[in-house]
Amino acid sequence: MKLHPVVSLLVQRVALGLLLLLAVSVLIFAGTQLLPGDVAQAILGQSATPQALANLREQLGLNDPAYVRYFRWLGGVVQGDLGTALTNGQDIATAMGGRLWNTMFLAFWAAVIAVPLAITLGLIAVRYQGRWPDKLISAVTLSTISLPEFVVGYIAMFLLAVKFRVFTSVSTVYDGMSFADRMSAIALPVIVLVLVVLAHMMRMTRAAILNVMQSAYIETAELKGVRPFTIIARHALPNAIAPIVNVVMLNLAYLVVGVVVVEVVFVYPGMGQYLVDHVAKRDIPVVQACGVVFAAVYIGLNMLADVVSILSNPRLRHPK
C-alpha cells in the first residue's frame, strides 16, 4: 500500500521528534551523571564522611555503570515512574502532577491572550508599515525584548499590585478555589508572560506577512483596487499561515521557559518553581524529571509546528 506523501512526511517528522526526545533524555541524564565531580559529594557537600558518601552511592545505585543506570531510569520514565526525590523521599510523579496542571493552566491563558493579540498587532503594523502605529508597536515591543522576564514581572507587580492595588502580588492557588478567584490570582503572571512572548511573536508575524506582501499576486490585488486591509487579511494572511504557525509554536515553546522565571517571581506553585527549588537543593532525580518534561513539551511544540506547516502547504496536500 502506498501512503499519501503527506502521511509519510508526517510519520517521518513524528518519528524524528521521538528520536530527538530519546537523544535529549540521554543528554540530560549524561549532564547530571557523567560530569566531572561526584554526585554523592555534590549532594552531601565537602564535609561529608566517607561512610555517608559510600551509603549514598549505594542508595543511588551509583556503583553500577552509567548505561545501566540510564536504562533503569528510562524504563521508569516510560512507565510514568519518575523516581523519588532525594530531599524528602516523595514520589516525583505525584508531586509533579498538580504542579504540571498549574503550569499548563498559566501557559494556556497566556497563549489564549497573546496569540490573537500578536497576530492582530502584526497585521496593523503591516497595514501602517513605516507610519506611526508601526513605529509605536515596534518601539514598545523592542523595549519588552530588552528586559529579562523577572524584571518585567517586578515592574508589573510594582505598578499593578503595589501602586494601584489592582491584583495581588503573590499568586496563591489551591484546590477548591473558584474559577474567578483563580483567574484573578494568575492575572499578573499571565500579563507578564503575554508581554514577554508578544513582542517576539508580533515582530515575527510582521516579518512573515511583509515577506508575502512582496509577491506578484499582492501587486495584482493592489492594482485591482482591493482595500489594503482586505489584501492583508484575504491574500497575504492565508499564505503566511505556515510561517505564522511556526512563530506561534516557537513562542509557545519559549513560554515554557518564561514560565520558570515568572513562577518564581509570583511564588506560583508550578513546575518552574519546583525545578528551581530542587536545583538549589541539588536534588538530581527531580531536576532530571523536570528537565525531561520541559524538553518534551518544547520538542512536542516544535514538532507540532512542523506538522501544521506541512498540512497548510497545498502543494504537499494535493501532489500532481
Binding site: A23, L35, R282
Partner: peptide, 21 residues
Amino acid sequence: NDLIMAIPSLIFALVVLTVMP
C-alpha cells in the same frame, strides 16, 4: 548542535548547575 538546541538553554543550564559547583 540540533540536539543541544532542542533543550531550552535555561533548563539545560539548571540541569548542569545542579551537579556543578
